[in-house]
């Protein structure tokens, strides 16, 4: 009887472990329509995708102040915005971290960072962390390129900015540039999903 109890217990624990270890793969795939949002920018104003009447799409980048990978990409993110804003694909950066879960990611820190680095794009705070889970972002930086059509903002690319985080000069694949260039050409991007190491999005436990 006792052994049976132990087995039942073991089975229960095993089952629990099986469930808890399952990765959550919710979020958008390429081809889905992305939700709009209304998030606070570092200038205090609220920003939505619907504000950008003339945009052909968006380069949405979940990024933050504190992740070394995000920091390594700051200048490249600004360069992307400068390159594509006037062509209709502005960068919108969203900080998905809960500022209570990590020091250095509250709105004041974001304002300071943007000023120091001369960010040319909106840097929004996903306060309440309602938006990043809908997109399915898991790390910073994590890029979603959206292409606007009659029905909404369609996800055209998900992934990394390029293929060398540590050395911009050594990059050989510019995933985001290639994808936006294709969209500007009215074509679908050739590479639609890439992966990169990044920092987990910080939430309170």
């Amino acid at each position: 009887m006792k052994t049976l109890k132990v087995y039942v217990l073991l089975a229960a624990v095993g089952l629990l472990a099986a469930f808890t270890s399952k990765p959550t793969n919710d979020g958008y795939d390429v081809g889905n329509y992305a939700t709009d949002f209304n998030l606070k920018n570092i200038d205090g104003k609220m920003v939505s995708l619907s504000n950008f009447k003339n945009a052909k799409g968006f380069i949405i980048i979940f990024t933050c102040n504190t992740c070394p990978y995000s920091i390594a990409y700051e200048d490249r993110i600004t360069a992307l915005d400068k390159m594509y804003k006037d062509k209709g694909f502005p960068v919108i950066a969203i900080n998905p971290n809960d500022p209570k879960a990590i020091k250095g990611d509250d709105l004041k820190d974001m304002q300071q960072r943007a000023k120091e680095k001369g960010f040319t794009f909106p840097y929004l705070q996903d306060l309440g962390q309602k938006i990043y889970p809908q997109y399915g972002a898991t790390r910073t930086p994590h890029v979603y390129i959206l292409s606007k059509d009659k029905k909404g903002n369609k996800v055209a690319y998900i992934g990394a900015i390029d293929n060398n985080f540590s050395d911009a000069a050594a990059v050989t694949e510019r995933y985001v540039e290639d994808a936006v260039n294709a969209l500007l050409d009215n074509k679908l991007p050739k590479v639609t999903n890439t992966k990169a190491i990044g920092c987990t999005i910080k939430k309170l436990k």
Binding site: G159, A160, N163, N164, F165, S166, D167, A170, E173, Y175, T194, K195, A196, I197
Partner: peptide
């Protein structure tokens, strides 16, 4: 190996 996309999957 900095070419993450080549090896993560």
């Amino acid at each position: 190996d900095t070419d993450h996309n080549s090896w993560i999957p």
